[in-house]
Structures are given as structure tokens and as C-alpha cells.
Design a binder for these strands. Structure first.
Length: 268
DNA sequence: AGGTCGACCTGGCAGC
DNA sequence: TGCTGCCAGGTCGACC
């Protein structure tokens, strides 16, 4: 799915487009993605005003006038598109009283939509680690967490109980900029490397947000437009291409069932 | 008990 | 053309 930068881009688009608008009608085209009984889902939404649009990790929370939340997890291929034209991947349409609508598109239907009184009803929110930009994601926290495990650092970066919002693309990119080999056991990350790892986590995610995310295949922003961070990606999906720093061909390996890309010369 | 591995789905693409 | 197999940004539960 979209990782943190992509979900944050969608959040900002939805905030701009939906804040203080009132849901008039919810049209369900494929109920697979609605993870609760449809009648209670639509009943909880109808007539509700959107009072806040927030993000936690890779999940969107739209607060309603009732105090409840519409939680949207777009997973791998979900999209929230303002005023888009429905297509074969459209699973639901939210119509607004003031005019306009939002499509929920999701090719693979892994996405999850539900209305809850409190996000903590959903396990994801209960186990989620700190946001990468939060104070809690500190050098001391990172050092203490990495010391506890021998798992490869790449797997740890992608573990959302360690830090929220980092997925397969940005884990590879952050490690490239930090010059750390993705297979290095987390407990072997040196104390002196941690400030740089944290700094690159911040700069990569921040820059990706500025570029409105990366579009490999399916990701689109709230206007249905691709992100442009692809042009800034150094290693992800660049197997065989020359490393931007040393010209060594980028390698692809598989870790925890996911592709990892790195430069074996630059990253130790 | 931490960590890995299918399952959940659809569709695009490479290779034959 | 059409088949097969592989691959895809995430998350969870079963299992070792």
C-alpha cells in the first residue's frame, strides 16, 4: 500500500475537500472491504458531518459529528478519490450533501473500512508504535529497541509495532541513505549510526510527502493523481541499475517474503 | 515468545 | 492468442 507519505498526502487532500461536509448517502458497490454489517456502517455515516481528517501510521481516521470515526485502511491498492469517475475497482462511493463525492477504489480488496466509536477498537491502533516524527521515536527508544533483537534491520524498520508508517519502499530508501546493509542484525547497529538513521528517516519521509508520494503501480492521491517521489528513489525496484553513488549494480534480495533493494558496496 | 509464512484478492507482465 | 507463473506499496493469525 501506500506508506506514510502516500497516506499523509491523501489525508491532506481529503481534509481540504471534505472538512465540514455532510455525508448524504453511502453507495456500496462491493461490500468485501466493509468490515462490519453494511446496515450499521451506512446508518452510522448517513447525515454525519466530517469534523476532522487524521492519520495514524497508514490508517486514515475521519471523525464524524457523532464523535465516531470512519477508519480507512487502504492497504495495498486502496484509493480515496475526490469527485473521480467510478471504474472497475470502485468498491464504494460517499456522496455529500453539498455536492461532490469520494470514491473508494481498491483493486485487490485488501482494504478495510469501518465506523468505530474509538479507533482503539481496531487492533492495528492498539499495537502501533510511535509516529516517525513524534518525540517518542527518539534515539534512546531506537537504541533500546534495536538492541533487543537479532532480526535484520530492514524487517525491524517495517515492523509497525516499532515505528508506524514505514513500508517496503521507504525501508529500502532509508537504509540506502543511512549506508546500512538491510541484512545487518538490528542489535549490531552501532550507537553512532542511530542519529543518522533517524535523520534519514525524517528527511526521506518528509521529502516523499513534498513529492506527494511514490506511485509504483496503484497509488493515487486524493485527486486521483500519481505521486512523483519515484524520480527521487535510489534503490527500490531498481535491480541491476547503477548505484547513484558508486555505480555498483543495485541488488534485489528477499527478506521476510518481501523484496529488498540495496547497494552492497555503499551499505555495510 | 519472537519471528516467519500463508492467506486475503486482482491484474499486469514476461515467457513460452 | 492464450496459457502459466510471478510479482505487487499491508496486515493478521496460524504455526514453528
Amino acid at each position: 500500500m501506500p506508506e506514510l507519505p502516500e497516506v499523509e498526502t491523501i489525508r491532506r487532500d481529503l481534509e481540504r475537500g471534505l472538512l465540514r461536509k455532510t455525508l448524504e448517502r453511502v453507495e456500496i458497490i462491493d461490500s468485501t472491504v466493509i468490515r462490519q454489517p453494511i446496515p450499521s456502517f451506512t446508518r452510522a455515516l448517513r447525515g454525519q458531518t466530517i469534523t476532522a481528517v487524521d492519520r495514524r501510521g497508514k490508517a486514515l481516521t475521519l471523525q464524524l459529528g457523532s464523535g465516531a470515526y470512519l477508519v480507512v485502511q487502504v492497504m495495498m491498492t486502496g484509493q480515496m478519490v475526490l469527485n473521480g469517475a467510478p471504474d472497475a475497482s470502485t468498491r464504494g462511493i460517499f456522496h455529500f450533501k453539498e455536492g461532490g463525492h469520494v470514491l473508494y477504489n481498491d483493486q485487490r480488496k485488501f482494504g478495510q473500512l469501518r465506523v468505530v466509536k474509538d479507533p482503539s477498537e481496531i487492533k492495528y491502533f492498539r499495537i502501533l508504535g510511535p509516529e516517525p516524527f513524534a518525540e517518542a521515536f527518539s534515539p534512546a527508544y531506537i537504541a533500546a529497541s534495536l538492541k533487543k533483537t537479532t532480526r535484520p534491520i530492514k524487517n525491524v524498520l517495517m515492523d509497525h509495532t516499532f515505528v508506524a508508517g514505514i513500508g517496503n519502499i521507504y525501508a529500502s530508501e532509508i537504509l540506502f541513505h543511512s549506508r546500512i546493509n538491510p541484512e545487518r542484525p538490528a542489535h549490531r547497529i552501532k550507537q553512532v549510526e542511530i542519529p543518522a538513521l533517524l535523520a534519514h528517516t525524517h528527511t526521506i519521509l518528509q521529502e516523499a510527502i513534498e513529492y506527494r508520494g511514490s506511485s509504483m503501480r496503484n497509488y493515487r492521491d486524493g485527486a486521483g493523481v500519481k505521486g512523483t517521489f519515484n524520480t527521487r528513489i535510489k534503490v527500490y525496484a531498481r535491480e541491476g541499475e547503477a548505484c547513484a553513488v558508486c555505480q555498483t549494480p543495485i541488488r534485489r534480495i528477499v527478506q521476510a517474503g518481501r523484496s529488498t533493494f540495496y547497494c552492497r558496496r555503499c551499505q555495510r
